[in-house]
Amino acid sequence: MRPRGVLFVKASWNPFRIIAAALMMPPLMTLAACAMHSPDLQAGVEEVNDPLEPINREIYWFNTQVRRVVEPVRQATATGGVLAPIWLGIHNVLSNLREPLVFANDLAQGRECAAGASLRRFMVNSTLGVGGIFDVAKSYGVDAHDNNVGRTLATFGMPEGPYLVLPVLGPSDVRGAAGIAAEYVADPINIGLRSGGAAVAQWPITGLDATDKNFEAAPDLEKLDRTSLDGYAALRSAYRQYEANELKGDGCPEVLQIGASASRGAGNGE
């Protein structure tokens, strides 16, 4: 259950994020403009590209309180907790439901090996993993990786835009929020649920997904808070670095990299 080096809640599809981004932008822009009187302060704000910082900080504080309130539940679901086996199954199912979206984004970004990994994971875990309850693909070294429409938009040249902290789900930016809006419409699982007359199932899935991602990130967020003077600024920096690094990576698991380089070598006549 330990997150893969995550210091924050990873971007994910969630209506909360769309609503927050859509409703809050105009009034927040006005507030931020009022706050920027001093040239020094303005230089600082531009450097961190966080014009909505006052409201972002409020949401960060809210998210921290929510995280601490649900901490006993998280501990019960963590390794060794009474709910750990059940929660692991839920986590695996949620992860599996996300694979079609990850696959589509891998393809759109030209990450063929990662797309292959996603496809393998979805096929193996949906069948041998009993609908995704068991992560069988992981035991073969094909670990899960995340991808989203925000990163696809980045690949096509869209800048990240101002930093945003979204209720419950945490750090993001304008590009990430736009990606979430697109995912809500275009996620293959959501399309399937809507066309099958089960659109209402999107809500519990969304709620569980948000909870799962918060549980994953909680220990690292607490550590960051304990070792920082300004946990908000530290998280903003960590989020930006992580996202920049994710855009550079190929998302290809090591076990498939060998196969990928072998086939490239064969293709080149090496």
Partner: peptide, 29 residues
Amino acid sequence: VIDGVSTSATTKQDYASFLRGANGNLDAL
């Protein structure tokens, strides 16, 4: 640097935020 996140860079941004609010006073930090 863990998964692309530099510990020094993160600390730098943390302290920069504090120092901006303290007029750059290193003693305050």
